[in-house]
Simulated scan of single mutants.
Amino acid sequence: MSSSEVLVLEEMEQVVAPKLELGTILVVEDDPRMQKVLRRIFAEQSYSIEVAGDGKAGLDLFRTRHPVAVVLDLILPQISGRELCQTMKSISPDTPVIVLSAITEVVDKVLLLELGADDYVTKPFSPRELMARVQAAIRRRKRPTQSAIYRFGECEIDFERMTAKRSGVAVVLTSHEFKLLRFFTEHPERVLSRDLLLNEVWGYNSYPTTRTVDNQILKLRQKLEPDPANPVHLLTIYGAGYKFIP
Rank of each mutant, 00 (worst) to 15 (best):
T95N: 01
D30V: 12
S80Y: 00
D108M: 09
P18K: 06
R140Q: 07
I49G: 00
R82K: 12
S175N: 09
V71C: 03
L72F: 00
F183M: 05
R39C: 08
I98Q: 03
T163N: 02
F62N: 02
M12A: 14
S90P: 13
E5I: 15
Q222K: 14
P96K: 15
P226M: 11
L112C: 15
K89W: 04
R140L: 03
I245N: 09
R65G: 13
T64Q: 10
R190M: 07
Q35I: 10
T174L: 03
T236Y: 01
A132K: 13
L113K: 08
I157P: 00
G241R: 08
P144L: 11
L196D: 02
V171L: 06
V51L: 09
M12T: 15
R33E: 08
V169D: 07
F183E: 07
I41E: 03
Q35S: 06
M34E: 14
S3Y: 02
H187V: 02
T24K: 10
D31M: 03
L198N: 10
R194W: 03
E21V: 09
R182P: 00
P231F: 13
L84Q: 02
A69P: 00
V169A: 14
A69D: 01
Q35V: 13
V51S: 01
R166Q: 12
R182A: 07
V134S: 01
L224H: 05
V232I: 14
R65N: 12
R140D: 03
F244A: 00
E5C: 14
S175Y: 00
R40V: 13
L181T: 01
E154P: 12
R63Q: 11
S193I: 11
Q135D: 11
R133D: 07
D158E: 06
I138T: 04
E10L: 15
G55M: 07
P246S: 04
F183A: 03
G55Q: 08
P18M: 03
T185M: 05
P226R: 15
P32F: 05
R166T: 06
I91C: 00
S206P: 09
P231T: 15
P226Y: 15
E186I: 00
S80N: 11
E186D: 13
K223H: 05
S48E: 06
L111P: 06
D30Q: 06
V191Q: 09
V37M: 14
S3K: 08
V68E: 02
L115Y: 11
F152Q: 10
M34Q: 15
Q86K: 03
A69Q: 01
T145Q: 07
E177K: 08
Q146H: 04
Q14A: 15
F183Y: 10
V71W: 01
I245A: 05
N215I: 12
T95H: 02
Q78T: 15
E129T: 13
H66E: 05
G203Q: 04
R40M: 15
E10C: 14
V37W: 06
D31Q: 09
A52C: 08
R141W: 01
S193M: 06
M88N: 04
E154M: 14
Q86C: 05
I245V: 10
A137E: 01
Q146E: 07
L198Q: 12
A43Y: 14
F184S: 10
P208W: 12
A69G: 01
E21D: 14
E13S: 15
